Amino acid sequence: MFEPYLTKWTLQPDGAPIHTPGSDLLPVRFDGLPAMLKIARDSEEKVGALVMRWWGGEGAARVYRHEGDALLLERATGPASLIRMALEGEDDQASRIACATIARLHAPRPAPAPELVTLEAWFRSLWPVARRQGGLFAEAAGVARELLGSQREVVVLHGDVHHENVLDFGERGWLAIDPKRVIGDRGYDYANLICNPELPTVTQPARFARQVEVIAEASGLGRERLLRWVLAYAGLSAAWFLEDGDAESAESDMRVARLAAEALDR
């Protein structure tokens, strides 16, 4: 699958292939530069390539080439890692770096944005789970409906900001990869930094309280608005995990949702 593009774009393989549920990737060299050749296999990844192009390398990896399902990207080669920072005593700094990157992504661009999914449609998986299960899912759904009905600062969203989608690009700084295809209130993009189930400390009450404080300040959202987006997003993420049969990750999200609901009640 890589060969046609290796030839067409004069690329040299520079590592082993990487296979994810949505794409196939190959580290390569392009004009002597480290790059990543990505072949999308699902519609979300294909639209994500259009978002990457639209960002124009500001806050995100540069796009060197794009044709059909194939995307040639600038490759991160810096040594630092946000998830490692978060686990080794630099959680505050990791969150501030991610927030600064999100702000760059949300900045206006001169070109029209690609056609994207609205945030209202993005939340569609939450509603049936809330009707079936009630309780905290219903509370998350109620808050989500209120937020969706009163959106402000509507921007092209990354849609999946977490500690492994913001990478160290050396002299170019911290840049995002792997966006989704959604547009809506900018508050949505900050919630996953607190909910990220790949981070083992995510359900710790002290970590939660501290990162709400750090991210509310760094994002300019304020504490209550951030907490409401966290509650809404955690319910949605849990609903997605239930659709995938991953009850353990869904429970992690609902523990975060509970922390957000309790903090809003104080």
Rank of each mutant, 00 (worst) to 15 (best):
L236T: 10
N165S: 14
R41L: 09
V143H: 08
L167C: 12
A140W: 00
D42Y: 07
A138H: 09
K46F: 03
A49E: 06
E67G: 10
P128E: 06
L119Q: 03
L226S: 08
V51N: 15
V202S: 02
W122M: 00
A130Q: 07
L175P: 02
E217Y: 06
F241Y: 14
P205W: 03
A98H: 10
S125D: 11
M85G: 04
Q211A: 00
K8Y: 04
D92S: 07
A261I: 00
E213Y: 07
S125Q: 09
F137Y: 12
H162D: 06
R225H: 08
T203C: 10
A86V: 11
V51I: 15
S252K: 12
S81Y: 14
A121H: 03
N196Y: 11
T10F: 13
F169S: 09
L147I: 04
A94C: 13
P21G: 07
W9P: 11
L242E: 06
F123L: 05
R228Y: 01
E224G: 02
D178M: 01
S23D: 03
R152A: 05
A107K: 08
T20K: 00
L264P: 01
L157T: 00
V47I: 15
R29E: 02
E251D: 15
L25A: 01
W240P: 04
D160K: 10
R258E: 01
Y188S: 07
M85Q: 07
